[in-house]
Amino acid sequence: MILGHDIDDNSTQTSQKFRNIKVIKLINPVTIYFIVLFGVIVYGSFRYSTTYIPFYQRNIESYAAHSLVKVGCVIGANNNDETKYYVNRTEELARNGSKFILWSEAIAYINDTTQYNELEQGIKNISQMYNTYIGFTYSDASSSNGKIYNKLTVMSPNGDILINYAKSNLVPFVENKVTAGPEILQTNITSDFGTIGGAICFDYNFPRLISQASKNNVDFMIQPSDTWVSSYRYVN
């Protein structure tokens, strides 16, 4: 009787150990990985499903543009810092119906306030005459302290300055003589484009600046860049 009881106990213990081993084999990192992967795939399939648009997606007609706006770009000519040349190119684009005109990065060079005033007045005349927005760029060396800034100025059709921004993230070594401006994204509200904002070329590599666009609910971001030009023309 005692021997039989011992045999039963041993059989029970062996069976329990076997079940524990099976459970351990089933619950392991590989199994957990595939369970999680399956869940992600199923969730993703529902998320991107086009059969239930109201919950996950919007119909394209609800956010796509119903009309197009003609824009123009003035690209810097190699070794040509003649301001009048770029102003004339800008007027040609405005005359042809461009409602927003943007210059590539630092295509004009301003030595003093007289030169800047002439440039600003020329852009203002075009903006008001043709009812267009113009983002013009220049290397600003007009400061009395001798510093050079890489600037973007945006003019409204009313002749108001909406953005007056100095590049805040400079290209190492290439822009070693340029002074960085404050790392604050300038924005302004317009009747034609909503809230606009602007930064210059290399600035877009820095989330701490560009992320300010979402915080300010920017609708239209502009980016003059030196890479539009066939050869590099940074200020040295």
Rank of each mutant, 00 (worst) to 15 (best):
S211G: 01
R89G: 03
S98C: 14
P224Q: 00
I101G: 06
S15W: 14
F100Q: 01
S156A: 08
E92H: 06
R47M: 14
L119F: 04
V69L: 02
L185W: 05
S49N: 09
Y86H: 04
I53L: 11
T187K: 11
Y43H: 13
H5W: 06
G72L: 10
K167W: 03
I222T: 05
N216W: 03
N217M: 03
I107L: 14
I27V: 12
K25N: 00
L119Y: 11
D81N: 14
W228E: 08
P224D: 13
G197I: 12
I134K: 09
L68E: 10
I7S: 07
P172G: 15
I161M: 08
D9I: 15
V36G: 05
T132M: 03
A94N: 06
N28W: 00
T90N: 09
Q223D: 05
I148E: 00
T179E: 12
F34H: 04
D219M: 08
T14P: 00
G197S: 06
L162T: 09
N80L: 07
G76S: 13
D8C: 06
P207F: 04
I107R: 04
A77V: 03
E91H: 00
D160I: 07
N216E: 14
Y138S: 08
R19I: 15
T132F: 00
I41C: 02
R19M: 12
I196V: 15
N236V: 10
G122M: 07
I32W: 04
K215T: 14
V87R: 05
I35M: 12
N111M: 02
I24H: 01
N164E: 07
F55C: 05
I21M: 06
S211F: 00
Y130M: 04
S168M: 06
L102H: 05
Y149S: 07
I24V: 10
D192F: 08
H5S: 06
T50L: 13
T31L: 11
P29Y: 07
V30I: 15
A180L: 02
S191A: 10
A108Y: 02
S214R: 09
N205V: 09
F220E: 06
T179S: 14
T153V: 15
S45E: 02
K147P: 00
F173H: 09
S225E: 05
A166E: 13
K17N: 15
N80D: 14
G159C: 05
Y52R: 09
V154S: 02
N150I: 01
Y86R: 09
T31I: 04
H66F: 06
S211A: 04
T14K: 15
G39M: 14
I32H: 11
V171P: 03
I35A: 11
G72R: 13
T113C: 00
M221K: 06
S144V: 12
N131C: 02
M221Q: 09
S230N: 12
N28P: 01
N150Y: 03
D6T: 14
I148S: 01
T137S: 07
S98D: 12
K70H: 13
K99L: 01
Y204V: 10
N125W: 02
K17T: 07
S168Y: 00
N217I: 07
L162M: 09
M1I: 15
V178T: 13
E183G: 01
V235E: 10
L152G: 07
N145M: 03
N188D: 13
T190Q: 12
D140C: 05
D140L: 01
F220M: 04
R47F: 13
V171Q: 13
K70G: 05
A166K: 08
N236L: 09
F55P: 00
D6C: 10
